[in-house]
Amino acid sequence: MNLRTLRAFVEVVRQGGFSQAAEVVSLTQSSVSKAVKTLEDELGTPLLSRLGHKNELTAAGEIAYSRALVMLAEHNDLVAQINDLRGLKRGVLRIGLPPVGCGVVFATMFATYRSRYPDIDIELTEYGSKKLRECLDAGEVDLAALLLPIDEGFDYQPVRNEPLMAVLPIGHPLAARASIDFTDLADSPFILFEAGFALNAKILKACERKGVMPKITARSGQIDFIVDLVSAGLGVAFLPRMLAHKHQHAGIALIPLDEPHTDWHIALAWRASAHLPPAARAWLELAREPQRSTGHPD
């Protein structure tokens, strides 16, 4: 049993298939299949039930997957502690960011970090919140940007808090309102982000509290496309204020969302038990410095 085999197995589970996993671990699909088969032979039991194009974990697979995450995390902690001896002259910043909003929040930080620590390599991983938490658990990233509340077992440092805005077609009957809530929008179809984005859960829980059952008419991971769908009259969407202002144009109206517990409150999280290497600690220190301009109106 080796770490490369375990990593291939973990990514097959995480990505939902052999071809997707092969792209992540930079191997051929046949090599990934062989790695999983080798692991199954070594353990003497099937780990995946292959039904058509779908792969489901067996009972043994569930155990193997959870243990593989621990073993990979321990290996990465060992590497981080050894790298710690080198200080900030060399090393790697391994950070995970969700696709939504982090360009606006962190782009300037990346430039500043690079200028201060030119010999630190930056490994950026982009996933939705669910997969980012898995990457943290496995020690594949040292830090990840996640929405509050943060799961038990992680420490975190808050970075930015933004209220949500409702994004309406300019011709919507409520487009001139000073503020809006989910009761007002009960009859309007919703355009949400793809599954795995933590912002969806905040929106749906707030709807549940109001007794609203939204009709979801579309999902996308691309903010530009979501805004275009709103402008075309397909439904209403919800964006953090800074992103809403950045994507504002004549075809949409931005209305403050008057709903508690729906703020986009992003933080940098790490495993509470993990050894944070100097490169990651330097990033946290940079994030604590005064906020830089994000290019949206106050």
Rank of each mutant, 00 (worst) to 15 (best):
F197N: 14
I216L: 11
E134P: 00
T28H: 10
C102N: 06
Y156Q: 04
L286D: 01
T125G: 08
D258H: 03
G171S: 05
D228I: 05
A244H: 08
V10F: 06
K54A: 14
M242W: 11
V79P: 04
E289T: 02
A279I: 10
A198Y: 01
T262I: 10
N55P: 02
V105D: 03
A107I: 05
V100I: 09
L43G: 09
L72E: 11
L229Y: 07
W270D: 08
D77Y: 15
R14D: 06
S220Q: 04
G295N: 05
L229W: 10
L39N: 02
L47M: 00
D224L: 05
R281M: 15
V104M: 04
G171N: 10
A176L: 02
V236M: 14
E56C: 06
P240A: 12
A195E: 13
D151R: 06
E23H: 08
P297L: 12
R133E: 00
G211M: 05
N200K: 05
Q81L: 00
D41G: 01
E289I: 02
R292A: 11
S33Y: 13
D258T: 01
R209T: 14
L204V: 04
I120S: 03
L234M: 13
S179C: 07
A282G: 06
A59W: 06
I122A: 11
H75S: 10
S49K: 10
D187V: 07
W283A: 07
F190H: 14
K215Y: 09
N161E: 15
Q15P: 05
K37P: 04
Y117I: 07
R219Q: 10
P260W: 08
I170P: 01
E285S: 04
I203M: 02
L72Y: 07
A218D: 09
L257M: 07
Q248N: 14
T294G: 04
R241A: 14
M213V: 10
V36H: 04
T262A: 12
Y156G: 03
A244W: 14
H245N: 13
L136K: 00
T28W: 09
L254P: 09
N76W: 15
L174E: 00
G139F: 02
H247A: 07
G211H: 12
I226N: 03
L6R: 13
S129A: 13
L284S: 13
P277Y: 13
A201C: 01
E152N: 00
D77P: 05
A287D: 08
A68H: 10
E285D: 12
F106M: 08
A60H: 10
F154W: 08
E194I: 13
V105W: 05
R271I: 12
D119V: 08
I203L: 06
L239H: 03
G16M: 09
P260G: 11
L164M: 00
A144Q: 13
G221N: 12
A279F: 04
S293H: 04
I63T: 15
S30T: 09
V32A: 03
G101E: 08
L204N: 04
R160H: 12
E62D: 10
I95H: 12
